[in-house]
Structure formats: C-alpha cells, structure tokens
Design a protein around this nucleic acid. Structure first.
Lengths: 132, 132
DNA sequence: CGGGATCCCTTCTGATACTG
DNA sequence: CAGTATCAGAAGGGATCCCG
C-alpha cells in the first residue's frame, strides 16, 4: 500500500496531486462543471491563461480521462471540451478542498501574520545584537 | 466570491492548491498525522526528501498554522513537529482526495493507455503519409 | 478558430559544504 | 541534531510566430 508515503510507491497519487497544484487544472475543471465549452470560451473565462497552457492542460486532462474533446469539422473549426463522468467525480473532492480553504482561510492569514511578526522581531533582535 | 475562477480573486485557494501540488507537503502532513516527530524521523520516513526541502516545507506549514515547532534546549538539540488542530483539519480533505485517486486510478491508467495508443497510431499515419 | 513550435526567463529543487 | 548558505540543473510557464 501507500503507508510509507514513499512517492515512488504511490506515483499516481503524487501525480494527481501535482496536477492539482499546477496553475490551471483546477480552474479549468471548475469551469467545465458548467457544461461543454469551446476552447475560446474557456480561455476567456479562465482569466490569465495562455493559449499554450490551456492546450497543454486540456491535453493532460484528456489523457487522464477527465475531459472529452469533440471536434466538429466546420469552417471555422469548432472544438468542444466537456467533463467525463470520471472528471465530474474528480471535481468533487477538489470542491471539498476548496470549501475547506474558504472556511478556514481567516485562520491561515492570522497564523501567517503572527509568524511574520515573530520573524520580524527576531531579525530585529539580531540587528540589535550585531549593532550593539 | 470566487465564481469567476480568476486566480487573482481567490489567491488563498490557489496558494493552498499549489502547496498541495508541491512534492513534499502532503507526504509530510500524512506522516505527522501519526503524532509529533523529530526532524530526523520525518526525514527518514519521507523517502527521498532533501534536508533543504524538508526545512522549507516545514517552515511553510508552520507559517500557515498547520504545524507547531517545538525546540527543546538539550544537547544535542531536539526539535519536534506536530500538526495543529488546523493542520489536522486540513489533512482531511486531502485524505479524501487520496482516497478518490486510489479508488479510480485504474480508470486513469486505462484512459492514459488508450490515449497513448491513439497518439501512437496518429504518429504512425503521419509517417506513412510522409514516406508515401 | 484551435492549435503546434520555438525562445526565453523565472521558479523549483537537489547536491554540497559549513555551523551552533 | 537541526539546520543555513550557495550554486547549478531541471522544470514551469509566458510571449511570439506560424499553420490548416
């Protein structure tokens, strides 16, 4: 099993985790929860994504069976992306995680402020010691 | 709210997501679920982590209020890390996600194999066309 | 419209050496 | 033991140009 937490032993979990961590995957999945979308629509909705990264991310999701890509042979070409069942299922634990952050981000910010204040204080002391 | 999925509008969620995606955070959190641990113990348990990355990751988790660091003024020095309540709570949606991957990774692997086979076939065709 | 290919810069991460 | 400091290679990601 995965009980030793050796990334070499549970490569799929690690992979999926870093997929989550990349800059665009989660955003794109959330957008696709609203139904099938064209390439340009996604690009417009996911603010800041480059053409390149959108393509790469969609390809990766397609490869993992999360997204289905449908090409319509029209002029101009029309390509639609939609979540598969697997992709929908995948989006649920992600949403749960997002929900957790929303409920707890005050505590996170507070902790950060406290930590930074302490660090600041320590650096200040160092300075005094060095100067004195 | 976060409904536009603009990372600029929900920076905390994005930050926490990329924290998840980094190579060691999740592993370390899972190890700390077993109770307080010394630096060297964690390093031994989390196979492959460098001293540097372990330090950096623990510092980040401490700053976010997920981990508490306790220094005992003994010789040699002894430093213990443990999950805070926030950290424990944080680990739950992560576990849920890990569980999802475990239950579904067969489908993921199958999808990948199918995708790769298709790509392979297309490259093969290209070759034939070019050669012909 | 929906990409593929290329260039380039930033960030991440590992290896190594040194310290209280 | 538990770090810090420095450096170099690898990976991530944006900008740009081109094509069917």
């Amino acid at each position: 099993m995965c009980s030793s937490f050796d990334p070499g032993k549970c490569p799929t979990v690690s992979e999926m985790l870093s997929r989550l961590g990349d800059k665009w995957t989660v955003l794109i999945i959330m957008v696709l929860r609203n139904g099938p979308q064209r390439f340009s629509d996604i690009k417009r909705t996911v603010v800041g994504v480059s053409q390149r990264m959108l393509t790469l991310t969609l390809r990766a999701l397609e490869r993992d069976g999360m997204v289905r890509r449908t090409v319509y042979a029209t002029v101009p070409p029309r390509v639609e992306y939609e979540l598969t069942e697997l992709g929908q299922s995948f989006s649920e634990p992600i949403q749960a995680f997002g929900g957790w952050v929303f409920e707890n981000y005050n505590q996170i910010h507070t902790a950060r402020a406290a930590f930074d204040a302490r660090s600041e204080a320590e650096r200040g002391n160092d300075k005094l010691i060095k100067i004195g």
